[in-house]
Simulated assay, not measured.
Amino acid sequence: MSQKVLITAGASGVGRAIAEAFAEAGAQVWVADVDAAALTACPEGWRRSEVNVADEASVAAWFAEVEAAWGSLDVLCANAGIAGPTALIEDVELDAWRACLAVNLEGAFLCSKYAAPMLKQQGSGCVLITSSTAGQYGYPNRAPYAAAKWGMVGLGKTLAMELGPHGVRCNVICPGSVEGPRIEGVMEREAAAKGMTRDQVYAGYASGTSMGSFIEGRDIGAMAVFLASDAARLVSGQVIAVDGHTVNPDPKA
């Protein structure tokens, strides 16, 4: 029987790559996103819902829809996130801090809260939380983002302990620098803040890994499919970086 998989922020970027990987593996895919246009552009075979993961009513309504349509659930990919501001801590506005934590950390919490009863009732399945290598190291000029991503690691490890007795696993995936529009925006803002060019920032990010490279969304998708498979049946509570091996989280080009 094919897996039933939910992916938040699944209409574009890393989320879409995760959805594509599961679909290629034969799973039933249901993506949630705040971008209605991006949802419309998703493949017809995918279920699609416009959901704001930072709003509990929106999340609750989505899970009610999922339960009515599917009745069970195998995999939750709590993937939604925003970059947040790029600034020194004294220049970060409280509203920007709260918005970053609301989408990244509270979004993962809310989706896990509503997925847990379905997974526990089934007695199997897994939660996959997309954190970041910013959840493993300090990250200058990105305090809200790093705080949220560290919090997601703690959430994932705790979920593994709570859900494990019910046969449900939870793991945290920590992408490094993923090629795409989001990291381009981050690099442009960081370049402006540090008086550097975008290419200098890019080179610094890449040289901060032992493999000297950014990663692609499909690399995250492949890891998600593996962690949700029987091949990873006893892998739980783990924080797994897909990043080309970060050796210096704040390299200077």
Score class of each variant (00 low, 15 high):
74 D>W: 02
141 N>S: 14
209 T>N: 09
209 T>S: 13
203 A>R: 14
85 P>H: 00
20 E>C: 07
61 A>V: 07
146 A>D: 01
150 W>F: 14
15 G>I: 02
47 R>V: 04
43 P>I: 06
156 G>W: 02
25 A>C: 06
209 T>I: 06
161 M>W: 08
100 C>T: 15
115 A>V: 04
223 M>L: 13
6 L>A: 12
210 S>G: 05
180 G>D: 10
62 W>M: 12
182 R>A: 14
163 L>P: 05
64 A>M: 08
133 T>D: 11
89 I>Q: 01
41 A>W: 01
44 E>C: 06
73 L>R: 12
123 G>H: 11
149 K>D: 00
118 M>T: 05
37 A>Q: 15
67 E>F: 06
135 G>D: 03
240 I>V: 08
248 N>D: 13
38 A>M: 01
46 W>R: 02
128 L>V: 00
189 R>C: 06
147 A>D: 05
122 Q>N: 08
166 H>L: 09
74 D>N: 12
100 C>S: 08
243 D>K: 13
147 A>Q: 04
161 M>N: 11
137 Y>G: 02
153 V>N: 04
1 M>T: 10
196 M>F: 06
37 A>M: 13
61 A>E: 12
241 A>L: 05
235 V>E: 05
56 E>Y: 08
25 A>Q: 05
203 A>E: 14
216 E>K: 15
96 A>H: 05
52 N>S: 13
178 V>K: 03
129 I>R: 00
170 C>K: 01
109 F>E: 11
91 D>Q: 14
43 P>Q: 07
147 A>S: 14
143 A>I: 05
63 F>L: 10
155 L>N: 04
175 P>A: 02
175 P>F: 07
56 E>M: 08
4 K>R: 15
86 T>N: 15
140 P>C: 02
2 S>K: 15
52 N>A: 13
190 E>G: 11
15 G>K: 00
121 Q>D: 13
57 A>L: 13
190 E>T: 10
145 Y>W: 10
212 G>A: 13
202 Y>D: 11
198 R>M: 09
15 G>Y: 03
208 G>A: 06
70 W>T: 03
142 R>C: 01
8 T>N: 06
196 M>K: 15
122 Q>V: 04
72 S>W: 11
6 L>T: 09
72 S>N: 12
85 P>Y: 00
249 P>L: 00
253 A>P: 15
232 A>I: 05
20 E>F: 02
181 P>W: 09
79 N>Y: 03
29 V>L: 00
106 E>Q: 14
124 S>T: 08
178 V>L: 08
113 K>A: 07
239 V>T: 08
38 A>R: 00
199 D>Y: 04
80 A>F: 05
89 I>V: 14
